[in-house]
Design a protein around this nucleic acid. Structure first.
Length: 374
DNA sequence: ATCCGGTACC
DNA sequence: GGTACCGGAT
C-alpha cells in the first residue's frame, strides 16, 4: 500500500510568516514603546551604530551617559577615526567589554578609508566591519535606512522563545538557526524602524527575564509560554555541563602512631599540599559509581612496597569530593605494614604523627578521612 | 554566588 | 562548537 509522501519542509521559514505578529508589535511600539532615547529620532548611521555597539551586552540606563559623553568628544565618524585609540578607550572606560571600543575605533577608520566616511546601507556589508555581527548590522540598517533585516539579540530570542514556545537552549546551533528563520519570516513589509524598536522594547521592558509583565504584553494572548505558565522556563537556560568524574586510589598506611604522607606537585589539584600516596593517578570515570575500579590486593601491596613490608590491605568506603570542574571519587585503601623501611628522601614522603594531622596542610577530604581513622 | 550576553577568536 | 570578555541584575 502506498503511503502519502510528506511534503519536504520548506527550508525558508515561510511557514512561520504571520503579518499579524509584526502588526501587533508595531502598533504596541507606537503607543507604548520608547521614543525619546538619545539615539532615536535620527537616521544618522554614526549615532545609530555607536548606540548599537554600546548596547551590546549593556543596558540602556548604563549606556546613556557614556553615549552622550562619547558623542560630545567624537561627534562624527571622521573625528573618531582620527582620534588616538587611548582617547577612545578613555571614553569607554567603565562600560566593559573593551574590545568593543577597539573595534569601534577600527571600524570608524575603515568606514572613512573604504566607504568615504559613510556607513554602508547593506546589512551584509555592515557585518563585514569590525564589531558588527549579523544582528547589529540588521539593527543599524533598519534604523538608519529602514532596511528589511532581522535582528536577533538576547531580548528578541527571549520574546520568540516564549511567544512560540521554543524549547531548547538558544545557544545551541539548531535552536539559534530556528530562531533566525522565525526572525526573517516575521519581518513586516514596512515600518521596519517601529518593528525593530518594538521587539527590542518588548524584550527589555515587558518580556523581562524574570517577572515579565505579561498583563501589559500585546502578545500575551498568543504567547505559548504565558498560556502554559512556562515564562519562568523559557527561554531554556544554558545547560550545565555534567562535571567529569574522576577516581583516585589513595593509600592509608599507618604504623606505630604515624601516617605516611606525600607532598603533591606545586601545580594541579591540591598543589603543594600534603596528601596520601596515590596509586595510578586520577583516572577518568564514566558516570557510573557502581563501576569504581577496585585495585587488586597484589597491586596494592606492590604500591606499598617502597614504604615497608606490607601484609594485607582493606578497602575503605568511597569518598566523593566535588570541585568546580570535576567530581572526584576517592577510594582509600588501608594497608598494614609488618615492618617499615627507611624512607627514600627525594620523593617527598613523610611520616607524620597522628596527633599532628589537624595542623597539617592536607586537602579537606583527606584530613577528614584521616581524622576519622587515626 | 550565579546568570546573562554579541562578537571575535580558537 | 566552545570560550573569553566585563559589569549589572538577581
Amino acid at each position: 500500500m502506498k503511503r502519502v509522501v510528506p511534503a519536504p519542509a520548506a527550508g525558508d521559514g515561510r511557514q512561520f510568516a504571520d503579518p499579524t505578529f509584526s502588526a501587533t508589535v508595531i502598533a504596541w511600539q507606537k503607543q507604548h514603546g520608547r521614543h525619546a532615547l538619545p539615539w532615536q529620532n535620527t537616521r544618522d548611521a554614526y549615532r545609530i551604530w555607536l548606540s548599537e555597539i554600546m548596547l551590546q551586552q549593556t543596558q540602556v540606563s548604563a549606556v546613556i551617559p557614556y553615549y552622550l559623553r562619547f558623542l560630545q568628544r567624537f561627534p562624527d565618524v571622521a573625528s573618531l577615526a582620527a582620534a588616538p585609540v587611548e582617547d577612545v578607550m578613555a571614553h569607554w572606560s567603565g562600560l566593559g567589554y573593551y574590545t568593543r571600543a577597539r573595534n569601534l575605533h577600527r571600524c570608524a577608520q575603515r568606514v572613512v578609508a573604504e566607504h568615504g566616511g559613510n556607513f554602508p546601507a547593506d546589512p551584509a556589508m555592515l557585518a563585514e566591519l569590525p564589531g558588527i555581527g549579523r544582528s547589529t548590522a540588521a539593527a543599524i540598517a533598519a534604523f538608519a535606512c529602514g532596511a528589511r533585516a532581522a535582528i536577533l539579540d538576547g531580548n528578541v530570542k527571549r520574546v520568540f522563545a516564549r511567544v512560540f514556545g521554543i524549547d531548547g537552549y538558544p545557544g545551541e546551533k539548531k535552536v539559534e538557526d530556528a530562531l533566525w528563520l522565525r526572525a526573517e519570516a516575521l519581518l513586516p513589509q514596512a515600518d521596519m524602524t517601529a518593528y525593530t524598536q518594538g521587539l527590542m522594547d518588548l524584550g527589555a521592558t515587558v518580556c523581562a527575564r524574570s517577572r515579565p509583565a505579561c498583563p501589559a504584553c500585546p502578545l500575551a494572548t498568543r504567547c505559548v509560554a504565558f498560556n502554559t505558565l512556562r515564562t519562568a522556563e523559557l527561554p531554556v537556560r544554558k545547560p550545565k555541563k555534567a562535571v567529569p568524574q574522576k577516581h583516585a586510589a589513595l593509600l592509608v598506611i599507618l604504623h606505630e602512631g604515624q601516617v605516611l604522607l606525600q607532598q603533591r606537585p606545586e601545580t594541579g589539584i591540591w598543589g603543594g599540599l600534603l596528601s596520601l600516596p596515590e596509586v595510578g593517578g586520577f583516572t577518568p570515570l564514566e558516570n557510573n559509581a557502581d563501576a569504581l575500579p577496585a585495585l587488586a590486593e597484589h597491586a596494592l601491596l606492590q604500591a606499598a612496597a617502597p614504604y615497608g613490608v606490607a601484609e594485607g590491605s582493606e578497602r575503605l568506603p568511597v569518598i566523593v569530593h566535588v570541585f568546580t570542574h570535576f567530581k572526584l571519587h576517592i577510594t582509600p585503601y588501608r594497608v598494614r605494614l609488618a615492618r617499615r623501611l627507611p624512607m627514600v628522601a627525594q620523593d617527598g614522603h613523610v611520616w607524620l604523627a597522628a596527633s599532628q594531622l589537624a595542623q597539617a596542610p592536607l586537602p579537606a577530604p583527606v584530613k577528614k578521612l584521616l581524622l576519622g581513622i587515626a
